[in-house]
C-alpha cells in the first residue's frame, strides 16, 4: 500500500488538539496506575502538549524519516522524556508507553474523521502507525543510552571511592594505589590527589604503587604529569614502591622520570617527607633508658 502524498494528520491534530490531549492524558494516567508508576501531572501535561505540537509540525513536512532536521525538536523532546523517566527508575516499556499510548486516542479520531472513506482511513492509520512506532523505538533507544550513562557515572564514583587519599602526618599525604591502573583511572585519581593537596595544604604527597602490577606508557606519563602539576602548585610529590619489573618497563618505554624523587618503599618515602618538612621522630623509651 502506498502512503498518501499528503497526510491529513496535521489538520486532524490541529482540529482536535484539546480532545486528543485530554483523551491521551486519561489513557496514560490509567496505564500508569496499572503499571504502578507515578507521573508528575504538570510535567506530563506539558510534555504531551509539546509532543502534539511537534507531531503536527513534523507531519506537515511530509517526511516520515525521523532522523531528519524537521524532527530535531521532536527528538530533543523524546530524549528529555526518556532521560527523566530513566532517572526516575522507569522500565524501557514504561518509557515507550509515553508514545505508544497516544495511538488509541489518535485512531479513535481517525476512525470518526474518515468514517466514509475506507481507503483514506487505511492510509492514514498506516502512516500514523509507522511514525509512532519509529518515535516509540527512538524513546527506547535514548532510554538505553541514558542508563548506560548512569552506569558509567556509578563506575566512576566507585573508582574514586576505591583510591582514598590519606593523611600520614600533618602536611604529608599518601595515595596508596592498588590494582590495575588504566589511563582513565590514573587521571581521575591524580586529580583527586591534587585537589586534596589544596584542601589540606599538605606540602608533600607520596604516590605509592607497591600494589600495582604493571604500568604502561600512558599511566607512566600520567604519574609524571601529576608530579609536575603538584610542583607547579607548590607541593613535592614522591613515588614509592616501584617494583623491579615496573622500573624496567618505565626505562624500556623511554619515559623519563628524571627529576622525580623515587623511594623503594612507603616507609623510606615517609622518612624523606618528614625530613624535608623538618620533622623528626624520637623514641622516648630509649631516651628514658639512656637518662637512667
Amino acid at each position: 500500500m502506498n502512503a498518501p502524498n499528503h497526510t491529513g494528520l496535521p489538520e486532524i491534530i490541529k482540529k482536535h488538539e484539546t480532545d486528543l490531549l485530554a483523551d491521551w492524558l486519561k489513557e496514560q494516567t490509567a496505564l500508569a496506575t496499572r503499571q504502578q508508576v507515578s507521573l508528575k501531572e504538570g510535567e506530563l501535561k506539558s510534555q504531551c502538549s509539546e509532543f502534539l505540537r511537534l507531531l503536527r509540525k513534523g507531519t506537515q513536512g511530509n517526511n516520515p524519516d525521523i532522523s531528519t532536521p524537521e524532527w530535531a525538536e521532536m527528538r530533543e523532546l523524546l530524549t528529555s522524556v526518556s532521560r527523566s523517566r530513566a532517572q526516575q527508575g522507569f522500565t524501557p516499556t514504561q518509557t515507550a508507553t509515553f508514545v505508544f499510548s497516544f495511538k488509541k486516542s489518535l485512531f479513535i479520531r481517525l476512525r470518526k474523521e474518515f468514517a466514509n472513506n475506507a481507503d483514506a482511513l487505511a492510509d492514514e492509520t498506516w502512516t500514523a502507525t509507522n511514525l509512532l512506532d519509529e518515535l516509540g523505538l527512538f524513546t527506547t533507544e535514548m532510554f538505553q543510552k541514558t542508563r548506560e550513562e548512569v552506569i558509567l557515572r556509578q563506575q566512576q564514583g566507585l573508582l574514586e571511592l576505591s583510591t582514598p587519599v590519606v593523611m600520614l602526618w600533618e602536611g604529608i599525604l599518601a595515595l596508596p594505589l592498588i590494582g590495575i591502573l588504566d589511563s582513565a583511572r590514573t587521571e581521575l585519581v591524580m586529580q583527586s590527589l591534587l585537589q586534596k593537596i589544596v584542601e589540606t595544604g599538605a606540602s608533600v604527597a607520596i604516590i605509592d604503587i607497591t600494589g600495582v602490577p604493571t604500568v604502561d606508557t600512558l599511566v607512566a606519563q600520567h604519574l609524571l604529569k601529576t608530579v609536575t602539576a603538584a610542583r607547579l602548585m607548590g607541593a613535592d610529590c614522591f613515588i614509592s614502591g616501584i617494583r623491579p619489573q615496573i622500573a624496567q618497563t618505565i626505562v624500556h618505554l623511554g619515559v623519563n622520570l628524571g627529576d622525580i624523587t623515587t623511594k623503594a618503599n612507603l616507609k623510606d618515602a615517609l622518612a624523606l617527607a618528614m625530613k624535608q618538612s623538618g620533622l623528626t621522630v624520637v623514641n622516648t623509651k630509649k631516651l628514658k633508658e639512656m637518662a637512667a
Binding site: I197, V198, K225, A229, L232, M233, G234
Partner: peptide, 15 residues
C-alpha cells in the same frame, strides 16, 4: 615565588 596555582590550572599547563 609563585603561590596558589589551582589544580585544574596546573594540570592544563603541564598538558
Amino acid at each position: 615565588v609563585v603561590v596558589g596555582m589551582q589544580p585544574a590550572v596546573a594540570i592544563t599547563l603541564v598538558e
